[in-house]
Design a protein around this nucleic acid. Structure first.
Length: 574
DNA sequence: GCCGTTTTCGGCCCGACTGTTTTCAGTCG
């Protein structure tokens, strides 16, 4: 039972309890517990053995600790089984319909016996829903529309794709009279690898003109709501975009609030409350009896300052460790794109890349890089025309030659060498020994059991010629789950053998993720952020990796390829 | 269900909008 399994079970319990209209704070306790477990860097089994035990985890009390212990021991939980005996698991899909919350979902289930999205659709179409107490024809229509959205709404939009929409929208909204400031907020601003929707915030006294322009954005499919200060639309792609208009003195408060995360805000507001203040999207207010006095709100900085907190970079506003960090002293200076000096994972047309060696080198020079590693696939990846030892040695001769010609950049002779299904490397040691930079990757046998995959990766880390393991969990966002691997063992082995681990900047990978990167840092393992470019434009994905690294709280010092080449070589132990 | 510099009970963030209501519950973010 992994941490992820247990977190998923707690989330499921929260759903089921919510459906039963249980105490909302009890529901929150389960959701909060699930999130804390998801953020945890060590396996719960290890925490259970440690000094403080499971209750040392913030948000895990006696009860949840016992449930975790039961899950670890038996793999199941009587309480969950009881809940599932009362509620068919399929009704949980009903909860995902926008506009249907736990209360109404429960009414529909109890009164009409609806157990699935399909039955819900039939109930709406036969106009049974409108006669329920608290429902009406409008609600029935909203639910019908929501069913279609729920059916496809499982997939969150990758950040890079949302970024394209965000930039188009900002451009579309330029030059509206009366608009003083404009900024995207939400999980997009926090740089999450995927976003659920987009939030646009506007500083203006009257939102009318902005809302009208907003509604004219070409890909708007429908307007969901439009009030005095708030408007929501759905785009053709299904992505929802929210617009909020606030006056100048509230812009910072609204930006802070709509950037989130939700849990970060809960913490902020709790802290305000303790000090006799109140924080909402309109500002920070001093509360004395019925009297509320505006204290701050025009900028985020003044909001935080009023609470004696530093301005937090949006990427770390997840209520993980940021408040702890703030109390310990100045916040760490998070890594920036400009800190990157090298790119150590890229392909050429020798394997499955599109550009030549020379073109990749030129493109890297254009982007101001000081060193790159050429790392085509090894022979096992036949589909990608992977290189055998002979072809590889020939490519390295070409690299040597090009290195002599190019003064601006240093090329490393590298290889992305497969870790074979049976274990061991895809190329002999005598070849790998001649490389400047050896990446080890799992591409095949991703469905093997956890022990086997872990053993393969640990074997690669023990190989003296391997420098780094690339995309260590193999996940592809929205497409493929990570393979089963004891990632803690990987961190420990990397630390022991003084190897590095990759944060692959490709927006579909971003693997290691933020939580893993933070764990790797704790183990003292250097992270390398790489583009894995397969064409010259692929070198531009570095910025997505930077966002992920910032979310992990990494500084330039934590990332090996921010070093000058000389210092990087020292890190390599050469 | 969790938690404690107003500690073991009584809190737990806050507001906009909609639809179905005659003053508010439900949902969402």
């Amino acid at each position: 039972m992994t941490n992820r399994d247990i977190a998923a079970i707690f989330d499921r319990i929260a759903d089921l309890l919510e459906f039963q209209s249980a105490n909302p704070f009890r529901v929150r306790a389960y959701r909060n517990g699930a999130r804390k477990i998801g953020d945890l860097n060590e396996p719960l089994s290890a925490t259970a053995e440690s000094d403080g035990g499971l209750t040392s985890i913030d948000g895990i009390g006696k009860d949840l600790a016992e449930k975790i212990a039961t899950l670890l021991k038996t793999g199941s939980l009587p309480m969950l089984d009881d809940l599932l005996a009362d509620i068919p698991a399929t009704v949980l899909a009903i909860l995902r319909v926008p506009g249907l919350g736990p209360k109404r979902a429960a009414i529909i289930h109890n009164e009409l016996g609806v157990n699935s999205l399909e039955e819900l659709r039939k109930a709406c179409e036969s106009q049974q829903v409108r006669d329920l107490k608290g429902f009406g024809t409008k609600t029935e229509q909203t639910i019908l529309k929501g069913i279609d959205i729920a059916a496809q709404a499982d997939v969150r939009t990758k950040w890079a794709k949302a970024d394209v929409v965000a930039q188009e929208l900002l451009k579309h909204m330029q030059g509206i009279a009366g608009v003083r400031r404009m900024q995207m907020a939400g999980s997009y601003r926090r740089g999450r690898e995927t976003v659920g929707d987009l939030d646009l915030l506007i500083d203006a006294d009257d939102g009318g003109a902005a809302m009208t322009r907003f509604g004219e954005f070409p890909s708007v499919k429908e307007v969901i709501v439009r009030g005095g200060t708030k408007m929501s639309v759905r785009l053709d792609s299904g992505l929802q975009v929210d617009l909020r208009v606030v006056p100048e003195r509230s812009f910072g408060a609204a930006l802070q609030y709509f950037t989130g995360s939700k849990d970060h805000n809960v913490e902020i507001r709790s802290r305000a409350k303790q000090r006799g203040m109140k924080v909402n999207e309109w500002g920070v207010f001093k509360v004395e009896g019925e009297e509320e006095t505006y204290l701050a709100g025009a900028t985020e900085e003044e909001i935080y300052a009023t609470l004696d907190l530093p301005w937090f970079p949006p990427e770390i506003r997840e209520a993980r460790r940021e408040f702890e960090l703030a109390e310990a002293g100045p916040l760490p200076k998070l890594i920036k794109l400009e800190d990157i000096r090298g790119d150590l994972h890229m392909h050429t047309n020798a394997s499955d890349g599109k550009a030549t060696l020379e073109e990749m080198a030129e493109a890297a020079i254009d982007r101001g890089l000081e060193y790159i590693a050429i790392t085509d696939h090894s022979q096992r990846v036949s589909m990608a025309n992977g290189l055998d030892g002979k072809r590889l040695l020939n490519q390295w001769k070409a690299v040597d030659k090009l290195n002599d010609q190019l003064a601006e950049i240093t090329l490393l002779k590298g290889i992305e060498c497969d870790i074979l299904e049976a274990g061991g490397m895809d190329l002999p040691d005598e070849v790998l020994a001649q490389a400047d930079w050896v990446i080890a990757s799992v591409h095949y046998g991703q469905n093997q059991p956890r022990e086997k995959i872990t053993e393969r990766i640990l074997g690669a880390l023990e190989n003296p010629y391997v420098d780094i393991v690339a995309h260590p969990t193999g996940r592809l966002i929205n497409r493929r789950e990570r393979y089963e691997v004891d990632i803690e063992a990987v961190f420990a082995a990397a630390a022991k053998h003084k190897k590095m681990l990759e944060l692959n900047a490709n927006p579909a990978r971003l693997d290691l993720d933020d939580v893993h990167c933070a764990a790797a840092k704790r183990h003292g393992v250097p992270i390398v952020i790489s583009t894995d470019a397969h064409h010259t434009g692929g070198l531009d994905v570095m910025r997505y990796g930077i966002l992920q690294a910032r979310r992990a709280g990494l500084t330039a010092n934590d990332v090996a390829n921010t070093r000058t080449f000389a210092k990087f070589k020292k890190l390599l132990g050469e």
